[in-house]
Nucleic acid binder design. Structure first.
Length: 104
DNA sequence: AACTTGACGTGAC
DNA sequence: AGTCACGCCAAGT
């Protein structure tokens, strides 16, 4: 059995290709132990360095703000744009870049 | 050890 | 179409 859903979570996030994004809730649903998107975020708060956390967005394509610190969202947007991810205002164009983690 | 808040999602009003 | 409310449950205080 999976010791930690975190391991699976990190593994999935690490498999997300450049130019693609995944939603928190979808990630939580494909883990052995299905968890809410909230839990995903909390686990990500302890994510190791080198993990492309910026490829994880809300299902609406919205960049989630962490601890009322918009700096993270801004950095995330810069990183995504750098990977050729299309933006629609403040939202990621999920209709083009949102992928299902279970397809990885 | 208990309470509060939260990197979310979906439905209801 | 925007806003409100509830469910999820772990981590920080």
């Amino acid at each position: 059995m999976a010791s930690n859903g975190k391991e699976e979570l990190f593994a999935l996030v690490a498999k997300v290709p450049v130019g693609a994004v995944v939603s928190y809730g979808d990630l939580g649903q494909v883990l052995s132990n299905r968890v809410s998107g909230l839990v995903i975020g909390h686990w990500m708060g302890s994510c190791p360095e080198g993990l492309p956390w910026w490829r994880v967005v809300a299902k609406d394509g919205r960049l989630v703000v962490f601890k009322r610190d918009p700096s993270f969202a801004l950095a995330q947007r810069q990183l995504l744009e750098n990977e050729k991810v299309a933006f629609n205002g403040d939202l990621v164009d999920v209709s083009r870049h949102l992928v299902q983690p279970d397809l990885l």
